[in-house]
Design a protein around this nucleic acid. Structure first.
Length: 438
RNA sequence: GGAGAGAUGGCCGAGUGGUCGAAGGCGCUCCCCUGCUAAGGGAGUAUAGGCACAAAACGCUUAUCGAGGGUUCGAAUCCCUCUCUCUCCGCCA
């Protein structure tokens, strides 16, 4: 959420910046509402002040045993006018609020301008792209040949965009998560967390998924009220990323200055409806309704957030370096960034079968955009509450990392070498082989 | 699932219709006092908005006592719904 003061004082500039990320700010409507708001709010508050003063007088009169009927008569007509005015004001403010909740963050000045993916800027590359002297397979063929990856059965259990892993591949998947968590906790200074996978609306509103992106989420209701979920009964949403529960840890908190920066990590499944992505990445593990991810979140002083972003990307890169997987870091352009981000780096890993780099991590500085929605603050030198900055990034998406390991470390015989750093998590195993070849 | 008790400021805790944004205490900040320390005395100490202003401070004003709604001239206090916490019973990984 943007600071409404900014919209009031510097609207032109903001409209321009939002346009760079393909967002048309509803200027006319906003100006109209603001104009009305000012008028109605002043009027409403004047009436309220009058009522409050009169009520106070009545109280005083009664406590002295005097007759208050004169004052009562005086404000008798006030009630209806006040009610009308209050209702009108509320209607205007909720419409303003709705606009505000749907406006994306402003891009940082260092973000390259552009319309879409093709305008993203490569920052650096790491690692050697492997060369194969045999016909390579993609991860689906590799996994199915190993008899460790089974999409047909997953479809029986749940449907499209689900997966079933077995045997050492399932274990390798677990090993990746453990390895990532351990690295971030032991070497990168993160606090490990275990968080809920079902969250309420407020949490999703805090990080920016709601109200705008409801269609991307899975919602669940308790069995006994699914036919008629009362508006009062909360229902839950499956988290689309651990960013939601982790970042909301600090919602409505004033963080002691000394505690900053906060750095949290969690390993969770993520659930996404993938509405609107029909036909994209239909094969394999790349795009699933359910996938695991290790997520990193920083809560930092506003002056530190861009340094923190570099640190965060570096922490995620370290995982790929340890796994010896080639990657590149991209600065997303204005048109390709997510809703809450002021600046985003994507890390893309090399996938030999696709002969391309694919996103495996997205690291964003949201500045105060989420903190404002969540009221996450610290006290400055004057003791005044000031919004903090929030950052989040994948460190890394586990399913996609598994894909990268399979494809990059495949051998001519269809086996897959296990990266050294993962072998301790695999009871020393150095290769995935078909069961028959064991 | 059943029975009951609760939710008040940074924390504890009083407050069952009126001068209550809220007693008292703790904590914190500043000042005074005493060689230092301890003790003591005094003052201050919620948040988010709006108006006005070039802007800040000040000022005026509104809202907020778990959340939402209602009754009332007036609600922390009464009524309804929801959420959460605690105790006991039942069930359960």
């Amino acid at each position: 959420m943007l600071d409404i003061q900014l919209l009031r004082t510097d609207l032109e500039q903001i409209i321009h910046k939002l346009a760079s990320r393909n967002y048309q700010f509803p200027v006319e409507r906003f100006n109209q509402l603001e104009h009305d708001r000012k008028k109605i709010q002043t009027h409403t508050e004047a009436l309220q002040a009058k009522r409050n003063a009169a009520s106070k007088c009545i109280g005083q009169a009664k406590s002295k045993g005097e007759d208050a009927s004169e004052i009562l008569a005086e404000i008798a007509s006030l009630g209806d006018a006040l009610k009308t005015s209050e209702n009108h004001l509320e209607q205007i403010q909720s419409e303003l609020q709705a606009i505000l909740y749907e406006v994306p963050n402003l891009p940082h000045d260092s973000v390259p301008e552009g319309n879409g993916e093709e305008d993203n800027q490569e920052i650096r590359r790491w690692g050697e792209i492997p060369e194969f002297n045999f016909a390579i397979m993609d991860h689906v063929s590799l996994g199915e040949n190993l008899n460790m990856l089974d999409f047909e059965t997953a479809a029986k259990l749940s449907g499209a965009r689900f997966s079933l892993m077995k045997d050492n591949l399932a274990r390798l998947h677990r090993a990746l998560a453990q390895f990532m968590l351990d690295t971030h906790v032991q070497e990168n200074g993160y606090t490990e967390t275990y968080v809920p996978y079902l969250v309420n609306r407020n949490s999703l509103q805090g990080t920016g998924q709601l109200p705008k992106f409801e269609a991307d989420l899975f919602a669940v209701t308790a069995g006994n009220n699914k036919t008629n979920p009362s508006e009062h009964h909360e229902h839950f949403y499956l988290i689309p990323t651990a960013e939601v529960p982790i970042t909301n840890i600090v919602r409505d908190e004033i963080i002691p200055f000394k505690a900053l920066p906060l750095k949290f990590v969690a390993h969770t499944p993520c659930f996404r409806s993938e509405a609107g992505s029909y036909g994209r990445d239909t094969r394999g593990l790349i795009r699933q309704h359910q996938f695991d991810k290790v997520e990193l979140v920083h809560i930092v002083h506003p002056d530190e957030s861009y340094a923190a972003l570099e640190e965060l990307v570096g922490n995620a890169e370290k995982i790929l370096q340890k796994l010896k997987l080639p990657y590149r870091v991209m600065a997303l352009c204005t048109g390709d960034m997510g809703f809450s981000a002021a600046k985003t780096y994507d890390i893309e890993v090399w996938l030999p079968a696709q002969k391309t780099y694919r996103e495996i991590s997205s690291c964003s500085n949201c500045e105060a955009f989420q903190a404002r929605r969540m009221q996450v603050r610290f006290r400055n030198g004057n003791g005044k509450p000031v919004l903090l900055h929030t950052l989040n990034g994948s460190g890394l998406a586990i399913g996609r990392t598994l894909v990268a390991v399979l494809e990059n470390f495949q051998n001519a015989d269809g086996s897959v070498s296990i990266p050294e750093v993962l072998q301790p998590y695999m009871n020393g195993l150095d290769r995935l082989r078909t069961a028959g070849g064991k």
